[in-house]
């Protein structure tokens, strides 16, 4: 199982390193959106609005990124993977791959915000931890939704519709935690929210692990 995950992940990552089209596309998407915000907002953003804007852009980037999880490859190749790997390994490798992709996007997005819109974040280490937790949560929830949308055959039109409602609990906890780390809150007060984020992610991964086999077999 673990070696299956490692090999599949290695395959996905080396494909990505060779072509670089997902990560470049995502960074360009984020940069383009942030630049649009820079042009739209004439005055300096208040922390609360900055925070909401940042996470909404992250959510769109994440939906966009994970939407490609399964549709990026030729359908025949999925039959090949089906014959050599267990569904759980496929799901885990895709989730880890999405996590890496979204972590890079999150950091890139923070850099773009910092350059163009300024950064109200006072507790930077905490904020970086929250970016990592957000990537984890996005990856764990959206990979399963991406599989559902991909199987239904209407990948991109359904992805946003299906993923937004299930993302709300995570997004609310995320925005609260992030707002605390922007203000001058102690790490201890953010810890509870971080725990909620981690728990939701673990629950989503566990559910996805149980449910994915039903989607995977044709």
């Amino acid at each position: 199982m673990i070696s299956e995950v490692r090999h599949l992940l290695h395959k996905d990552l080396s494909l990505e390193l060779r072509r670089m089209h997902h990560i470049n596309g995502l960074l360009l998407f984020v940069l383009g959106t942030v630049f649009l915000c820079f042009l739209s907002f004439q005055s300096k953003l208040e922390p609360e609005k900055w925070n909401a804007l940042f996470w909404i852009i992250q959510l769109f980037a994440a939906v966009h990124a994970s939407g490609h999880s399964f549709s990026g490859e030729h359908p025949n190749r999925h039959i090949y993977y089906y014959s050599i790997a267990s569904p759980g390994a496929i799901l885990l490798s895709k989730t880890i791959y999405n996590f890496i992709l979204l972590l890079i996007t999150g950091l890139g997005s923070y850099a773009a915000f910092w350059l163009l819109l300024g950064s109200p974040v006072t507790n930077v280490p905490n904020f970086l931890v929250i970016i990592a937790l957000a990537a984890l949560g996005f990856a764990s929830i959206l990979t399963l939704v991406a599989a559902i949308a991909w199987r239904s055959g209407h990948n991109f039109s359904l992805m946003a519709i299906l993923s937004f409602p299930v993302m709300y609990p995570f997004m609310i906890a995320l925005i609260k935690a992030s707002l605390l780390s922007i203000g001058n809150a102690q790490t201890a007060s953010i810890l509870g929210f971080m725990l909620v984020l981690i728990l939701i992610s673990i629950l989503a991964i566990a559910l996805a692990f149980i449910l994915f086999p039903y989607l995977w077999k044709e």
């Binding site: 929830i141 399963l144 939704v145 559902i148 199987r151 239904s152 299906l162 409602p165 299930v166 709300y168 609990p169 609310i172 906890a173 609260k176 509870g192 929210f193 909620v196 939701i200 629950l203 989503a204 559910l207 996805a208 449910l211 039903y214 989607l215």
Partner: peptide, 25 residues
Amino acid sequence: ARISAVYNIFAFIMMIIFLLVLPKL
């Protein structure tokens, strides 16, 4: 039937989290 059952279960549990956990926060 199969795909919507998967979404139904996943979404139901996310909704329960939303209804039970988040109001406390």
